[in-house]
């Protein structure tokens, strides 16, 4: 075992990896923020009465959801050569998960009862006011746990950014491995770090889901 696992190497790579944890977290949160905004845009477009807009949104969601994030990242990387790779990575993650979040928003919006729309209309609310004051405040809280789940899924996809040369945990581990030929420690510790961050978060989301279910 000792020649497979070296604690000194493990400690070395651990400190190198810890240093880039902020990059991973930044990519996660910025990507998710973008996904949350774009997702809402797609969801609203999907409800448009103007058919070309809703059809466009439908196919956009389908297309983005059923093609690999890795290929989307490469595509953006080639199409936007002037942008920093971190920005491309965040855009790719945000765009990819916006398609998933659009469906989540849609579910939340459809769950708001028809009477709310009618009441807003009866009170002569403008469409903007109906959305911002009546519909969204009721549609969004119930979907927060589901969005939390996607935040964790997005977090777990960030290692893909190494493929477009973003310096994050996976690329540091790969570089360390190829320099020292000690892949075991590097890849194992990346895995453990991801698990340590994602598992407690998933328990938190599950707890939030249960509380939400109790409320209803």
């Amino acid at each position: 075992m000792s020649d497979i696992w070296n604690w000194q190497t493990a400690a070395d790579v651990f400190w190198k990896l810890i240093k880039v944890v902020p990059v991973t977290l930044e990519a996660t949160f910025l990507g998710f923020a973008l996904a949350a905004v774009l997702g809402l845009v797609w969801a609203l477009m999907r409800r448009s009465r103007f058919r070309p807009v809703s059809v466009l949104s439908y196919w956009l969601i389908e297309f983005v959801r059923s093609t690999p994030l890795l290929v989307q990242l490469f595509f953006l990387y080639l199409a936007l050569p002037r942008f920093p790779v971190f920005v491309i990575g965040v855009t790719g993650l945000g765009l990819h998960y916006s398609a998933y979040l659009a469906e989540v928003y849609r579910g939340g919006i459809e769950a708001v009862s028809q009477g709310q729309w009618e009441a807003a209309r009866a009170l002569n609310f403008s469409p903007l006011k109906t959305w911002t004051r009546i519909i969204l405040p009721q549609a969004i809280p119930p979907i927060i746990p589901v969005m939390g789940n996607y935040l964790i899924v997005l977090f777990k996809e960030t290692p893909l950014l190494f493929a477009i040369n973003v310096v994050e945990m996976m690329s540091v581990a790969k570089k360390f491995g190829s320099h020292t030929f000690q892949y075991t420690e590097a890849y194992t510790i990346v895995g453990v770090l991801f698990f340590l961050m994602s598992y407690p978060s998933s328990l938190l989301v599950r707890w939030a889901e249960q509380r939400m279910a109790l409320k209803q």
């Binding site: 290692p159 996976m170 890849y187 990346v190 895995g191 991801f194 698990f195 994602s198 598992y199």
Partner: peptide, 9 residues
């Protein structure tokens, strides 16, 4: 709990 890419590698 871990990523597919990490498992694959």
């Amino acid at each position: 709990g871990t990523s597919l890419l990490i498992q694959l590698f």
